[in-house]
């Protein structure tokens, strides 16, 4: 709490926004499905950091509880995502999303 108050809230917001943007750019630019997963995790962790910072700033615990929900759900989501990826890997022997081009306009 002490150290947190020493660092202004704005810095936390900027750091989270930067992390979030890096995550978004990663999702948009990278071609490997596993790296895209990691970038999505990065986006979610930026949110977690922001929630915790706001929670400390406001002095109430709701934000921190929300972070637990995000962590639990993100874990479930990644479990499903990785199993989808394994399914694709069995059929195509690659994790490059360039292979996902059967369905097109």
């Amino acid at each position: 709490m002490e150290t947190l108050q020493a660092i202004p809230l704005n810095h936390y917001i900027l750091l989270s926004a930067a992390l979030f943007s890096i995550g978004v750019m990663g999702v948009l630019l990278r071609r490997n499905a596993i790296i895209i997963f990691m970038c999505i995790e990065l986006m979610l962790n930026a949110v977690n950091l922001l929630m915790v910072a706001f929670s400390a700033h406001h002095g109430d615990g709701k934000g921190q509880v929300f972070v637990f929900f995000i962590m639990a759900v993100a874990a479930a989501e990644v479990a499903v995502g990785l199993s989808i990826l394994i399914m694709i890997h069995r059929n195509t022997n690659t994790t490059d999303i360039g292979f996902l081009n059967k369905l097109k306009f």
Binding site: S16, V27, I40, V80, L85, L100, L103
Partner: peptide, 26 residues
């Protein structure tokens, strides 16, 4: 497979935006 993968990637990407929005509102 492709449909599941695309839906998963886009769905969790959208969830990221949604959560960031919730964090700012909070």
């Amino acid at each position: 497979n492709e449909s599941a993968m695309k839906y998963f990637l886009m769905g969790s990407f959208a969830t990221g935006f949604l959560l960031m929005g919730i964090a700012f509102i909070y």
